[in-house]
C-alpha cells in the first residue's frame, strides 16, 4: 500500500551547483562558525581540555618508556615526547605547570615549541637551575592566572 501511495523516487540526476540562496546561507553559517570557534569561551575550554588530556596521556607514556634512560637523545626523541611537541604552543602552559612540580626533561620540548632557550650557559645540566630559568621566562611571557 505504501509503495503505491508514495512511489520511490529514483535520483538519476542532481543539480551540479547549489543555488545562490543556499550558497549565501552556507557562507554565513561558515562565518558564524569561525567567529564562534575563535571567541567562544566554551570552545576554548573544550580545546584546552583536549590538549590537557592529550598532554597527560603522552606524558604518562613518555615517562614510562624512558624511566631508566640517561640518554637525552632517547628521552627527547621518544614518540610520545614528539607528540607533545606537535601539540604546539597550546601545550606550553601545561608543560610549565608540570615543570613547577617536577624536574621532568621539558627543556627540549619548550625550546622546540617556543624557539627560545633561556637557559644560561653556567646552568647547563643543573636541572634545578635550568628549571628556574624556564619558570622565570614563563612568568614574564605568560599570564600567571592562565597558568
Amino acid at each position: 500500500m505504501i509503495g503505491t501511495a508514495f512511489s520511490p523516487v529514483i535520483e538519476n540526476w542532481r543539480p551540479f551547483a547549489i543555488s545562490q540562496e543556499a550558497s549565501f546561507v552556507r557562507r554565513n553559517v561558515e562565518k558564524c562558525f569561525t567567529l564562534f570557534i575563535n571567541h567562544s569561551v566554551f570552545v576554548k575550554e573544550q580545546h584546552n581540555l583536549q590538549v590537557k588530556q592529550s598532554f597527560e596521556g603522552f606524558k604518562e607514556v613518555w615517562l614510562e618508556k624512558t624511566k631508566f634512560s640517561s640518554n637525552i637523545s632517547d628521552i627527547t626523541n621518544n614518540s610520545a615526547y614528539l607528540s607533545i611537541i606537535e601539540l604546539g604552543t597550546d601545550v606550553v602552559p601545561f608543560i610549565i605547570k608540570d615543570l613547577r612540580i617536577t624536574d621532568n626533561h621539558w627543556f627540549y620540548a619548550l625550546e622546540a615549541i617556543t624557539m627560545v632557550n633561556p637557559i644560561s650557559k653556567d646552568h647547563q645540566g643543573k636541572i634545578a637551575l635550568m628549571k628556574n630559568d624556564w619558570l622565570k621566562w614563563a612568568e614574564s611571557n605568560f599570564d600567571i592566572d592562565e597558568l
Binding site: 640517561s70 640518554n71 637525552i72 637523545s73 627543556f107 627540549y108 625550546e111 632557550n117 637557559i119 650557559k121 647547563q124 645540566g125 643543573k126 636541572i127 635550568m130
Partner: peptide
C-alpha cells in the same frame, strides 16, 4: 650529584 651529564648537540646538558 649536581648535574645531568650528556653530550647532547643542543648543549643544554652538562658535558
Amino acid at each position: 650529584t649536581e648535574k645531568w651529564y650528556w653530550p647532547d648537540k643542543k648543549h643544554m646538558y652538562y658535558w
